[in-house]
Design a protein around this nucleic acid. Structure first.
Length: 512
RNA sequence: GGUCGGUUCGUCUAGGGGUUAGGACACGUCCCUUUCACGGAUGAAACACGGGUUCGAUUCCCGUACCGACUACCA
């Protein structure tokens, strides 16, 4: 029998959703769509202490921005709710108790101090790995060492306790990871992980397995940092008797720092000057902030495309994929095994490609909005004209207005470097004559006409146009470089161009 | 330290017993051009190391080195 594919993204609301998490969500989404299955989102908020208000809505907004919204989630529940573990709290204890009953788990009463003492003792005795396991549990206070009566009375008296999994002494635990193949570990290297915490909440390991089972998850696609605990999870499925529906595992390679080594972290973004989060973030409680790709000017489709290629490739030379195309091309077999260093230059390149492909009409809102921030109200037509002028030469939408606002706001200052090199007698002659020419010109003034007109004026005055061109640009735009000057002339019109030239003529000093 | 995972140009990667080891980003040069970009062309640039298997290993096996993850009543 083949089950409907159901995958989940299960973040913890402990802060802004990290870019690595976004990629994990994306791969889950792509796989679900590819297989005609469902993509669910489950909030893993079992740690009260680390809960951060606002983090959950941040996750929701991030996924919505990218268009990879889940089929089932706390905000649009399916049949397997609730989708927040805190709201499923009551169900976990019984599963833990079942494990105790079956002899696969036990109560432990050790205090934090006793645990610490044990670790110190073991470290002093040069035991390589101090851990609560099949050896050390015989010396601790738990239902394996205490009498049945004592356990009962401790439980009855309300003494705090945890429930720990009882890892078998000698057993090879193996799992067939979709990305890594067979991975085998010996149970003697595993420790008796806490399943139920003393606050009555389950740990990740318990809640995760129980919920994945209850939510009929068929494939667990998650970061490689979970690989070491995967054997424990396999063991838990076995203890629960759920082996026949145990999901397949796929452990994704990690996103690494661009320089040096290690996992990509928030600090890297701060240090290198680019975001490592999808959206801007601010923690109201402690004032912590983080920069987001959206606000930095990245287009969602470009960002998605970039993210998809961090650890996956389609096997051919194509790089530009829409979300639909990613779904069609995606396959788990083509996910790499090794960690991926994060390269912001490539992200910029993707953004440029998508920007170029966008229509000027679609770009206009960015321009209008940026202009209004400068106190300039511009029309759709103007915004589109500026977008047409700039979109092939910028990385981010904000650079359109930034690089072309001189069209709307006439320059009052001129680039001194350019002026000192180019504002010579020839330039002044040419510009004076050109301004006069423009005055009498009333027919259609397009880029082609402007070019002809300027050329004729230069010829008439026996001036080499090439040498004076930058001065012309300077007079009209205030800068020595920028988009096609003739296109700018066409947008400005004869009157405005003439006016600007006269202003420059009156303002700039001629070099000898 | 232990367990697990990984290792092809600076980066992302394709490939896989016999290849001039391919592409993309970034970088250099040239062309286009009124500037700056875009675009086009082109260049430099990689199989971690040592054994083994083999007629032949970058590819398969073993070891070493290096990198990473994990090693909590966090996920």
């Amino acid at each position: 029998m083949s089950r409907e594919v159901r995958v989940r993204f299960a973040p913890s609301p402990t802060g802004p959703l990290h870019i690595g998490g976004v990629r994990t969500a994306l791969y889950n989404y792509l796989f679900a769509r590819k297989m005609g299955g469902k993509f669910l989102l489950r909030i893993e908020d079992t740690d009260q202490a680390r809960f951060v208000p606002g983090a959950e809505s941040y996750i929701q907004e991030s996924l919505a921005w990218l268009g990879i919204s889940p089929d089932e989630s706390p905000w649009n529940p399916g049949n397997c709710g609730p989708y927040r573990q805190s709201e499923r709290k009551d169900s976990y204890m019984q599963y833990a108790l079942d494990l105790v009953e079956a002899g696969h788990a036990y109560y432990a009463f050790d205090t934090a101090e006793e645990l610490e003492a044990m670790r110190e003792r073991l470290t002093a005795a040069r035991v390589v790995q101090p851990q609560y396991n099949s050896i050390t549990r015989t010396q601790m206070k738990n239902s394996l060492t205490l009498s049945e009566d004592e356990v009962k009375s401790r439980l009855a008296s309300g003494e705090p306790y945890v429930i720990r999994v009882k890892i078998p002494l000698k057993e090879d635990v193996r799992l067939n990871d979709m990305i890594r193949g067979w991975v085998m570990v010996h149970s003697s290297t595993l420790d008796d992980k806490v399943l139920m915490k003393s606050d009555g909440m389950p740990t990740y390991h318990l809640a995760n397995i129980v919920d994945d089972h209850l939510m009929k998850i068929t494939h667990v696609i998650r970061g490689e940092e979970w690989l070491p605990s995967a054997p424990l999870h396999v063991l838990l499925y076995k203890f629960f008797g759920w082996e026949d529906t145990m999901p397949e595992f796929a452990h994704l390679p990690l996103l690494l720092k661009p320089d040096g080594n290690g996992k990509l972290s928030k600090r890297d973004g701060d240090k290198l000057g680019f975001p490592v989060f999808p959206l801007n973030w601010e923690n109201k409680a402690d004032g912590e902030t983080a920069a987001g790709f959206r606000e930095a000017g990245y287009l969602p489709d470009a960002f998605l495309n970039f993210l998809a290629f961090l650890g996956w490739n389609p096997g051919d030379d194509r790089e530009l994929f829409s979300l639909e195309e990613l779904i069609a091309a995606f396959s788990m077999e083509r996910i790499g095994k090794s960690g991926t260093k994060f390269d912001i230059a490539k992200a910029k390149w993707f953004n440029e490609q998508y920007l170029k492909a966008m229509s000027t009409a679609a770009l206009a809102p960015f321009v209008i909005s940026d202009a209004s921030k400068d106190g300039e109200i511009i029309l759709q037509d103007t915004a589109e004209a500026l977008a047409a002028l700039m979109k092939e030469r910028v990385t981010f939408p904000a650079e359109i207005w930034q690089g072309s606002k001189f069209v709307v706001v006439a320059p009052t200052e001129f680039d001194q470097d350019v002026a000192s090199k180019r504002w010579n007698a020839d330039a002044v002659t040419l510009l004076t004559a050109f301004a006069q020419t423009l005055e009498g010109f009333t027919t259609n003034f397009d880029a082609e006409t402007a070019k002809t007109l300027l050329g004729e004026t230069a010829d008439a005055n026996e001036i080499k146009l090439g040498k004076s061109m930058q001065a012309v640009r300077l007079a009209v735009t205030g800068a020595g470089a920028g988009p096609d000057l003739m296109e700018i002339f066409a947008i400005l019109g004869t009157e405005e161009v003439a006016k600007r030239i006269r202003f420059a003529l009156a303002t700039l000093e001629v070099i000898s």
